[in-house]
Amino acid sequence: MSWVLISLLFWAAAWALNIWLVRHRADRAMTRVLVPVIFGLSVLVLWEGLVKGLGVSPIILPAPSAVLARFLSSTETLWIDFVQTALKGAVSGYLIGAGAAFAAAIAIDRSPFLKRGLLPIGNFVAALPIVGTAPILVGWFGFDWQSKAAVVVVMVFFPILVNTVQGLSETDRMQRDLMHTYGATYMQNLVKLRLPAAMPFIFNGLKIATTLALIGAIVAEYFGSPTRGMGFRISTEVGRLGIDMVWAEITVAAIVGSTFYGLVALAEKWVTFWHPSQRG
């Protein structure tokens, strides 16, 4: 019981500290980082305390410390799974899908007719549960990472396409007229005016697609994969009741997902430094 009490007290103390930080140190840059970190830590301590204090079976919910121990003792397996799912499946699919969507958007953009026809359809398809195509694509491309990359390509294609097409029409009349008076060619217009103006939208699509890429790569593994990969490991370990291993994989997935998103967000900051949302 003392575990429960101590962890609850810790959580309350952390919350009080956060309130104090926000009230009195809100102007410091450190506070912005410190507050969520303290909150996250306190939740972990609460989790640990509740699991230990209430004697929750590790088959149901392992304590964070047990997950950490499992994580550290099986880094080799986790690394192999990471390479298989995240690097080979998700990232390669993401690059192919984003490239294809970008090229398609530039092509569509030249024809207003196509644009009006494809945009509603693309918007619709982007809202569909495309993960459902995973078994079909696994059947077509085999069990290895190629089929996972294919699922990812299909999943990321439409959000990026729709956002890019929309972004390309974001220039206003005055800007286009100015380029016209300069006698700019189509290419100059595209590279110097319309692509930069489209960048905030393109990055919006790219950011949405990072999460979709990981989801696609993991789900596709449930439908058949070689004996490695995050989705494969999760489904087999659930069957063997190795729940601490499942949580270790979830931790990897969380780190990979956040890092991937963070990298794209960083690239966005670097490319669209001029945009109001990136200033101040």
């Binding site: 999460t211 999760i234 489904s235 659930v238 499942v246 997935a253 997902g257 956040s258 991937f260």
Partner: peptide, 15 residues
Amino acid sequence: QTIPIVALAPMIIVL
């Protein structure tokens, strides 16, 4: 939202 929910899905059912 950056955590792939599918990784969590089997856990939610076990829980």
